[in-house]
Design a protein around this nucleic acid. Structure first.
Lengths: 149, 149
DNA sequence: CTCCTGAGTTCCTTGAAGAAACTTGACCTG
DNA sequence: CAGGTCAAGTTTCTTCAAGGAACTCAGGAG
């Protein structure tokens, strides 16, 4: 947890950072997404300290992004994405697109996506939900909304 | 900077976190995006410590996400998004969408987007660049890419 | 010549990340 | 049924980054 609490700010970026802005959290989410969802698996895959992993998992469960569920009669559980968490992964897909473009270098992207609907390898594209045209940072004006400070 | 270096991992999420994963970085980017782009303005708006702000700005400039440019004959400069940075803001727009939906509460979103192309208030939507159909975390298979470990 | 202003630096304190050993509760094994 | 295993954490200790506040420095303005 960073020292300052972002969650109080009237800004959806700051609030979202309060949920997954701590170091490791996005990577934990990614791992759970791809099926690495038990404590020791996560710890081994990420090389994260067990203490910090415990903190992150508890926080993500508290925030309703992950759920803990038993998979044995013993006190064993695994972590799974909730609907709220699955939608966060959408954001990670956009993050991946950026990283693939600007940071992957010679080797190209480490991972490819095959879209179920069309069967093609493709990346995610940002469109306006109203008109379907491309929608990027430079294509919009910002207006105060109802929840403005 | 978190202790562990994410940049070495064969993962575009980890690499992107190496660029903007530190606390405050996404908020600095947001501020520069909306026109808060001088040192003291940023410091006042965010309430960030001056030391950390210096570190973050240097890092973002080093990474080619921001550029520093003089605005006076004096040693004064302001920060602006590069193309690389502007595309990162696309990711913030998706982050905002998620925060608006899951964290805004009663008051609704603090900010609205008006799309230049259609003039409507709308959010960003994730589509497959190949077929144009919706593309979310559950709609794809992951395959190893050329840059896989 | 002194004051002001923007853009940082320096210094000190606190608290989160890393690493590694320890704990706990259910089962399994001879 | 004593001893061991295994997953899932806890504890403890050290180190380094974040916070905060005061200080510096260069170029005008009065």
């Amino acid at each position: 947890m960073q020292r300052t609490n972002f969650g109080e700010m009237a800004c959806s970026i700051a609030r979202t950072l309060d949920v997954i802005g701590e170091p490791w959290s996005p990577l934990v989410l990614r791992d759970v997404w791809v099926g690495i969802n038990r404590f020791d698996q996560l710890q081994a895959d990420l090389g994260i300290s067990r203490k910090v992993l415990t903190e992150r998992l508890n926080h993500l469960v508290d925030q309703g992004v992950l759920e803990r569920r038993p998979y044995d009669n013993r006190p064993r559980h695994e972590y799974a994405l909730t609907e709220k968490g699955r939608e966060l992964v959408d954001m990670l897909m956009v993050m991946v697109r950026w990283g693939d473009k600007w940071l992957a270098g010679e080797d190209g992207p480490p991972v490819l996506y095959r879209h179920h609907a069309c069967g093609e390898i493709g990346r995610v594209d940002l469109r306006c939900e109203r008109c379907g045209q491309p929608m990027h940072a430079g294509d919009i004006d910002l207006l105060p909304g109802p929840g403005a400070a």
